[in-house]
Design a protein around this nucleic acid. Structure first.
Lengths: 242, 242
DNA sequence: CGCACCTTTGACAGCCGTCAACTAATGTGG
DNA sequence: CCACATTAGTTGACGGCTGTCAAAGGTGCG
C-alpha cells in the first residue's frame, strides 16, 4: 500500500516489478553507493517502451523546454538539473535529481523546463503514454506512480518554503537536505557549480559564495575546496535553517 | 486515461464514481458558479469513509500543523489556506484552495502545515488509509489520485518559480493565476487579506499594498476596494509576470 | 460610539543584486 | 613545458528593492 516503506523511485519500480506487470527490473541501491545504477538491468525485450540506460556527458541536454513530453525518466547514475530560462536571461533550477529519482512526470503536453546533465550520467526512459495507460489498467503501477508524485510533492513543498528565507537559511536547508538525500555522509562533494546552487535557491553566485564563507568563518561548516563541504556542526546548521 | 480532460478534483471524483466503486457522487460545477458545492450529494451510507459536507467559519482550523493525517479533503465551497508558522513568527501560506480542489494529500504521517478557513466554507473528507487502500485495488481511483497529484505538482512548480522574482512579478503572476482558476472573470474579488497574499508570496503586506497601488497608477489594474481588483490590461500584466 | 482589524503611507535601514577586478583551476596548442 | 584561453570562484564597492517600524486612515461590528 502507498506509503509503506518504498523510499525511492527506483525502489518503487523494483517493488512494482514483483507485484505487477514487471515494468522494470531494477536492483535498488542506496544513493551513497557509487556504483548505484550500474547494476540496472532493465528487461527491454519484454517491455519495449522502457529503454536505456542511455549515457550523457556533462552539460548535455536530455530535452529542452517546450519539447513534447514523450518520456518519463529514471536516473540511474550521475546528476540532472531541470532548468527554466526567463525572458530577462536569469535561469531557475527547479530540482537536482539523484540516482533513483524519477523526473518529468507532468500532465502537460510539453516540458515546462529543460533537463541537463550536471555530471556524466545515465538514465532509463519510459514511454509516457504507455506508462500512463499501463497505470490505467494496473493499479499497482498507478499506485506506485502516485507514491512518486506524493514524495515529489512533499519535497517540492519543502523547497518552496526555503525560497522566502534569508540566503543563510536557504543554504543551510539546501546543505542539510542534500546531506539527507545522500544518507547523511560526514562530507559533501557537490557536483554542481555555485552558480547552479544560486539558480536553484534564487540567489546570485556571489551571495552563495559569501554566505558559504560566512558559515565557514562561524565554524558551522568546513570547506576543503569550493565544493568540498563538511557539515561541522549539524545542529547549528539546523538552527540557521529554521 | 490520465490527462484526458478531467479538470478538477471534483470532476475526478465524480468521474471515478461512474467508473469505479462509486466513491462519491458529486456533480461538478465551474469554480465561478457561486452555488458550487451546494449540490454536493455524497453517498455517505454506502461509503462510510467519505463524510461531510462539514461547515467551518472564517478562521476556523480544519487541522493543525503536526496533527495526524487521517483525512484527505475535498473543498466544496469557500476558501482554505494551508499555513506553516516559522520559529521567527513569520507565516508562510503554501496554497489557497478553491471549491473542487483536494488538499492534504501527503505521504507523511503528520500534517506539515495547518489548514484554516479563509471564508466560511464546507468540505468533504475521506479517510486517508481507506482511500489509499482503495487505490491499491482500484486502478481507477489510483489513476484519478495520480492525476490530482500531477496537477498539484505542476501548479506548485509554477508557484515556486514565482518566489524568486520581484514583488511586482509575483503579484502579477498571482493575479493572473487566480483569475484563470476562476475561469478568467473580468473582475476579481479576493477573499483573502493582503496579509494572506503577502504570506503566500513571501512578501510583507506593506510591499503588497505598495505594489498593487503601483500597478493601479500605471493603469494595469483597477481597484474598487482593497480587494476588488479588475485586470485592466491583461497583456501588460503578463509582461510584468515574465 | 468605540473597538477591532485591515489597509495605506512615510521614513529608514539592511540584505542582497549588480558591476568590476582579481585569483585559481583546467585545458589546449605550440 | 609554457603561453594563452576559458571557466569557476572570490572579494570589494555601491545601490536598490523590500523589510521594519511607526502612525494615520478606513471599515465593520458589537
Amino acid at each position: 500500500m502507498v506509503g509503506e516503506k518504498i523510499y525511492t523511485m527506483a525502489d518503487m519500480l523494483w517493488h512494482r516489478s514483483e507485484l505487477s506487470a514487471g515494468l522494470v527490473c531494477f536492483e535498488p541501491l542506496p544513493h551513497s553507493d557509487p556504483t548505484r545504477g550500474e547494476h540496472c538491468n532493465l528487461q527491454s525485450e519484454k517491455h519495449p517502451f522502457v529503454r536505456g540506460p542511455r549515457r550523457y556527458q556533462t552539460d548535455d541536454f536530455l530535452y529542452d523546454e517546450g519539447d513534447i513530453t514523450r518520456h518519463i525518466y529514471l536516473l540511474t547514475s550521475g546528476m540532472v538539473r531541470r532548468c527554466r530560462v526567463l525572458a530577462n536571461g536569469r535561469r531557475q533550477i527547479l530540482s537536482f535529481s539523484l540516482p533513483g529519482d524519477i523526473f518529468s512526470m507532468t500532465l502537460h503536453h510539453r516540458h515546462s523546463a529543460s533537463a541537463e546533465a550536471v555530471t556524466n550520467m545515465s538514465v532509463m526512459f519510459v514511454e509516457r503514454r504507455r506508462l500512463l495507460s499501463l497505470a490505467d489498467s494496473d493499479s499497482g503501477v498507478a499506485q506506485a506512480l502516485l507514491e512518486v508524485m506524493m514524495r515529489d510533492h512533499d519535497d517540492m513543498q519543502e523547497h518552496m518554503l526555503s525560497l522566502t528565507r534569508s540566503a543563510e537559511s536557504r543554504l543551510a536547508r539546501f546543505l542539510l537536505r542534500y546531506s539527507v538525500r545522500l544518507q547523511c555522509p560526514p562530507q559533501l562533494s557537490l557536483p554542481m557549480t555555485l552558480r547552479d546552487i544560486a539558480d536553484h535557491l534564487g540567489l546570485t553566485l556571489e551571495t552563495v559564495c559569501r554566505t558559504l564563507n560566512g558559515m565557514k568563518c562561524s565554524g558551522v561548516i568546513e570547506r576543503a575546496g569550493p565544493r568540498q563541504i563538511s557539515l561541522r556542526d549539524r545542529s547549528a546548521l539546523e538552527c540557521l535553517a529554521e
